[in-house]
Design a protein around this nucleic acid. Structure first.
Lengths: 344, 344
DNA sequence: AATAATAGTGCAACCGCTTGCATTATATTA
DNA sequence: TAATATAATGCAAGCGGTTGCACTATTATT
């Protein structure tokens, strides 16, 4: 059982050539004769040689590794995105390090420091809710490590960003509610400190305005989206004599919660109340009724972010784009009122 | 904007000490005087020094990085497990590289080669369905890279394994079905090439035997668990004059599918037919009715695997354990028949 | 056949940190 | 005070590749 790993020196000496020749042969340098290349590669296979990427990284001053920061890997959207990133990075022969911020800025900073130490070639990130400044990311850039943000972006950082059009998605969701017969739609979203929720609220409002549906006072709620918050909101709404007949939740998980609470209130979905969410999860197919949603293509978003980052690394272009990923309206039963105006 | 990264040499020369002194000071070696240590650490902070982990890894011949191989990051159980691994690894100051096999052996082999090249300190893996031999993992071990398997393990590899007791879980699920009034429970699982499904089937059978419930012919199905397979199975069962009155699915996703198909057949759940699954997902709370399950603690399993691996790395112990993670029976509405024998 | 151009290979420095051993400064002991 | 033990620091050789440049072997040009 050979303890020590085979190195290019082993190959070199067993073939009586220089290590540099071996290195070039293994990297298919054009400066090596076909004959030698084959001799070297065969010997390498014979000895079970595997390149030491650490050594290679050190001398090449690039690691072929990119770092991914997400709030939590175990949330559907982010795991989809991670999957997308991973597949692109792998296709291009790279490696991926994934780290979770757990929604704290402190941890996010820790991770960027770690990535810096690791000399990753680039970083893709979706920011924690807490993140209100981006010095830690700017620091990466100043050390020549390009950054690409997706979904949870911050416009204080000059970099390529891959986002969905939150305004448009919300607009479409609200329009869908209206077109399927809702006269009194309501909105529940997260804090406006996150631009994303602001935009979703705006899209919702504008859609109502454009369709001449008045926004009832108290029907546009901003909370922290904790379970309690959502329960409170529902209680407030349902205790009214004129409750909403449609709800748009600005997050997928909130929608799932709302559908359950609505059932507890014995509300008929969608006939008493329609429900649609921003964000789509596998669950949505399995709820009762199945839950309509604005679907954010997580995998594509991750893949796109990765492609942009890798291009920036490869070509050193410092051209920063704002990429808008397409949204899909997934109509399911939670918004198909019997007497709705529009049936698919 | 300083392009080049600060190195220990920069610190050394600006302080007129040797690089080795700086290195030791930064690593809190006891061989350095308090005074120098502080001087060095302050200067390091002042210059914005960040250790180059690549260089450090190369000279220490250890990377502080561990590799994780899972079939797919975007599946709940595995993302939970990954999360568990990550948190433990991070607590101990390490880094994690995650790679997905996408359920193919070939990709799994590729990953192990990549990990080898990366000189990860250890590997945690949950095998692809295709994986019927473990030479690629044995190869890691032979190069002194310890391996820990979880959930999808292979007993051909001598290593620590973290699993759940599939037999017992299935036994408990089946017993639960029986105790809640099922007289004709059925089982649908994956191919027996995977030990795990075999064990679940065995647990199911034994529970019936122990409770004197006969297993009807054709009620223990082994398929590839594709959507078509599940539909076929349900059609076969439901076209009988004496269909099952309870179904135990050996995977969570199959259960979700079954509950939907059952609704399409207009079956009352749980009164006409109870459903319980091996594996629990957030979805289970939101289906209608909510779906009972044997819950595998993904996060804990990952964390446990990580702890064992890191200990093996640190202490070089070659003692290999079989760790059985506890299962939880999550009783929800899909198994609470009105006239069941046992109510919680 | 002599010269120039080109292809193939080797030398050696380097990437940045670590570490065994040698050396020097300081403290302890006789 | 000299001899010895101990603490603090420095030297230099790695770790395993990569790469600019020098050098040799081969081929093309006149």
């Amino acid at each position: 059982m050979s303890r020590r790993n085979i190195t290019i020196n082993d190959i070199a000496s067993s073939l009586n050539v220089a290590p540099s020749t071996v290195s070039r042969a293994l990297n298919n340098s054009s400066r090596i004769s076909e004959k030698t290349r084959i001799r070297v590669q065969e010997k390498a296979r014979e000895l079970g040689y595997e390149i030491n990427l650490i050594a290679s990284s050190l001398s090449k001053e690039e690691t072929g590794t990119i770092g991914l920061i997400i709030p939590g890997i175990n949330r559907f959207f982010f795991s989809q995105a991670a999957s997308g990133v991973e597949s692109v990075v792998r296709d291009r022969g790279g490696r991926l390090i994934i780290a979770q911020s757990n929604e704290t800025l402190e941890r996010e900073k820790e991770i960027t420091r770690m990535f810096q130490s690791y000399r990753v070639d680039g970083v893709i990130a979706s920011l924690s809710v807490e993140t209100d400044e981006v010095d830690h990311l700017a620091c990466l850039q100043s050390r020549n490590i390009p950054v690409v943000l997706f979904d949870r972006v911050h416009f204080g950082l000059e970099c390529t960003k891959v986002v969905v059009d939150n305004f448009e998605g919300a607009y479409r969701a609200a329009t869908h509610l209206v077109k399927t017969g809702c006269k009194r739609p309501a909105f529940i979203g997260g804090p406006f400190s996150s631009k994303l929720f602001q935009q979703r609220a705006d899209g919702f409002s504008e859609a109502l305005r454009d369709h001449d549906i008045p926004l009832q006072p108290g029907f546009l709620l901003t909370t922290d989206l904790t379970t309690t918050d959502v329960h409170d909101a529902m209680r407030k709404w349902m205790s009214r004599s004129d409750p909403p007949d449609g709800i748009f939740t600005a997050s997928a998980s909130t929608g799932l919660l709302v559908i359950r609470i609505a059932r507890d209130y014995q509300l008929g979905i969608p006939d008493d109340i329609s429900i649609i969410t921003f964000g789509n999860e596998p669950c949505h197919e399995y709820t009762h009724p199945s839950l309509s949603a604005i679907d954010m293509p997580g995998h594509d978003i991750g893949a796109t972010a990765a492609r942009h980052l890798l291009d920036e690394i490869r070509y050193g272009s410092s051209e920063h784009n704002l990429v808008i990923a397409p949204l899909q309206l997934r109509i399911r039963n939670s918004t198909l009122k019997k007497d709705g105006w529009e049936k698919p």
